[in-house]
Nucleic acid binder design. Structure first.
Lengths: 202, 202
DNA sequence: CGTTGCTTTGACCTTTTGGTCAAATCATTC
DNA sequence: GAATGATTTGACCAAAAGGTCAAAGCAACG
């Protein structure tokens, strides 16, 4: 029986600082490209101190990914089968685009992980993610069968939303290099909304 | 005056083997995640032998990126201002999707680079890439002004093609985890073609 | 205000990794 | 087939990086 002591104020503050710093560093350099020294420096802690709060580099990364996956899928979970189809989908798209704008580091953390073959979350993808997407794909199929939105491949429809919205976070430098001064988030929402209105009008 | 000796057969073979091996390793693990030992092993060479052909890890990576950037942008260059607008755009989309299917490692090499802020090719993006995209955006704008395709933001239109097509290479594991047995490249082309037909019909 | 347990750190260890070098081997050409 | 230059390698090096540990510093509570 190990007694679980309550978390002290210092622990709460330092753990939060570490995760914040780690998100910065991991999202910018990938898992292998990030170093404990960088993370410790960004969190204003010494390296041994950092390792007092998390047992290893992997543990920090895992904690981040686990905590984020839920947040990341919330917008899709919120897609309401009882709602007005087109509005539900546009709301989902909007929410995803807001996340790309407001949480780009989180998006890039996932992008790094997935591009490199998702070594750490492959199992989660094939179980949790797949079943969530399958469930929502059935909702979409129902809407299509009822003639409430146009008939398209439901899974690819979802992929298209992911790719179009996350592109603005993951490929931010490229987008901005091409766009120059124009802020992508000024013009992207209208473009993407138009796209889905045209695609999905029955 | 340094005399440039012609490349021997052995040199040609080994340099090619190294670049092939490096593409494998860099695209799978990112720059920092790849090691010279891995690349050397994949190329069937000893590490010092590898460094006889390329002076450093950076040099190998640079050689890959430089060689690939051109290939990567060829489909966009091929967009013909004199062609039939919708057909030109659909051909571009098709070509990009084929590249995702046939050259996924190349796509992931770029994805790794860009997600991490494009430290090595930032300058190229803001000069060469930007001017190519701007040029083609003007072509699109012309087509829109002439009423030959629907009016949408031309840059975002191009971004959408990049993101929709490259998603199938860069996020391959995720797509396959969600799709199960279905091959994404069986169903994606039809979905994407439909999408652009609906978006762009005047 | 001293004890207890939480927190922090300097010093250190080991492994990994990019890179060097001199010597050996191999190919080619005269 | 000897000489010349291209190719290959084992041994080695220094720096970076993940991680350990014992001791010191602090906070809080009785």
């Amino acid at each position: 029986m190990t007694r679980t002591r309550p978390e002290t104020r210092i622990q709460a503050r330092n753990r939060a600082a570490i995760l914040e710093a780690a998100l910065d560093v991991f999202s910018a350099h990938g898992f292998r490209g990030a170093t404990l020294d960088q993370i410790a420096a960004a969190a204003n802690l010494s390296k041994p101190n950092l390792l007092y709060y998390f047992p290893s580099k992997d543990a920090i990364h895992d904690a981040l990914l686990a905590g984020l996956l839920d947040t990341w899928l919330d917008p899709l979970r919120a897609l309401d089968p009882e709602g007005e189809p087109l509005e539900e989908l546009l709301a989902y798209v909007r929410r995803k685009l807001e996340m790309s704008r407001d949480l780009p580091r989180e998006s890039r953390l996932f992008a790094n992980e997935i591009v490199q073959g998702a070594p750490r979350i492959h199992a989660t993808l094939s179980s949790d993610l797949k079943s969530l997407v399958d469930e929502k794909a059935r909702v979409l199929t129902g809407w299509m069968a009822a003639g409430r939105i146009a008939r398209v491949h439901p899974h690819h429809l979802i992929f298209s939303i992911w790719s179009l919205t996350q592109h603005y976070a993951d490929f931010d430098v490229q987008v901005r290099a091409v766009l120059g001064d124009e802020d992508p988030f000024d013009s992207a929402p209208a473009f993407i909304e138009t796209l889905y209105r045209k695609l999905l009008s029955p």
